[in-house]
Design a protein around this nucleic acid. Structure first.
Lengths: 143, 143, 143, 143
DNA sequence: TTTT
DNA sequence: TTTT
């Protein structure tokens, strides 16, 4: 059964990153990303929601803010739920497992990569495997 | 201004591809893609909508059907609209610019790649530049 | 300082995978990959050398053989050395961190993904961090 | 027959880009790219050779210089030849089909994307299809 | 042959 | 809900 899922996007944060924690204490960072469409005469933009877990999420929350350019490598995630009116809703967003800070002025600030699997500290109550972390781990709906 | 947008996913068609035409006669093929989450104990699946334009779309419509495995390279596309009840809605899907047919039995059938930029015939009324093609080109809402 | 390195290639093994071990007992699997050039009239082929470490390498060595189709996600690696005649030589190859087995006949055999970071057992004498593993860990030159 | 070949790398030019022309007058730009290995304690670097054809190559030659940061999307290319001493030699490099200029200081300079398939002017004697362009088109060996 |  |  074939299965592959890889996304690489670069753009600018549409808002300051928000850091939250699952019930088990695992950090997750959320932010919006604006990616301008290239060779589009009408200035179109694609907007995506991105989440980053654990140390990667903490790094982004600590160093990035609205407007900053960033490159995100990750996977596409589909989620569905039932709306208040009973209708079916769904959403596709990006789960980062690697980011690259862009936009350093001159040679200085800005650059630097932050990988998701580079060990990093584990929150005491944290689960070991990202792929099983989802909305059930949150006290309330996180998206 | 930094800008990059690349997606590579492989999975199986969730339905037969549907081929439609813009008002200007440009073919566009739509299909659903199911990508099984790897290393997920609970058999999770991500579902995406994919569209493919012009000759690439025609090739997919001609050769692929529900259940077939496929690899899609493309870009993520964001679209927003106002729902009937006046609420704001949005959607992220994939625009293919290259696909690879997978799943040949033995060494034989199945394989074969179809690129989007390989010339291909142009519908007489077609526009030249994909990036400007959008819902306005359709007689009615296509998604 | 910007830094990004990602490769995704699919093709067929040009030889049976070879499994070796570093001095510290870390498994490393090597194989050749043939990727046919698409839309090339003259049947051109690109040939690459690929290595896969630890459990990922063992899985490939156990399940794949010459001719099998495979998708490899990894990074490009540059290495240089001095030839016997004193001249400078260098080589670019691929280090896999994820593979997808392709080519199942029908729906059955073949498929299945093997990630590099999925824990996996550690050889007792193994080092913890791939990025520091290199030719010095080998008893003799492995490439 | 499965076939896929995609590379995305970001780093700094190791030398000024060099613009040459095939016998048929098609521009081709060559440059070196240094990609620093992330999470490597010993400051390792991967060095790659990149070529870019036609308008994309001209744009790089016109705007980029040694040291500049750049993101390159393309494909891996294998080439082999016989050395003067009769021995077999080969090389793997990158053919760009899209680049993203990085490293704007502040919000200003630097950014901007240059795609390979965006029409662009054709040199009068140029051939239409990159995939058939190769060393035979050159007056002398270009690599 | 090498960049920050 | 939106960035440069």
């Amino acid at each position: 059964m074939v299965s592959f899922n890889r996304v690489i996007v670069a753009g600018n944060l549409t808002r300051d990153p928000e850091l939250r924690f699952t019930g088990g204490g695992v950090p997750v960072c959320s932010f919006g990303l604006a990616v301008n469409r290239v060779r589009s005469k009408n200035e179109e933009v694609d907007f995506f929601d991105v989440s980053a877990w654990r140390e990667l999420g903490e790094t982004i929350a600590n160093y990035k803010k609205k407007g900053d350019p960033i490159l995100v490598e990750g996977r596409l995630q589909y989620r569905s739920w039932e709306a208040q009116d009973g209708s079916k809703r769904s959403k596709v967003d990006i789960v980062a497992d690697n980011v690259q800070f862009l936009g350093g002025r001159g040679d200085g600030e800005g650059g630097g990569q932050s990988g998701g699997q580079s060990g990093g500290r584990r929150q005491s109550g944290g689960r070991r495997d990202d792929v099983d972390l989802n909305e059930e781990d949150f006290d309330d709906i996180p998206f």
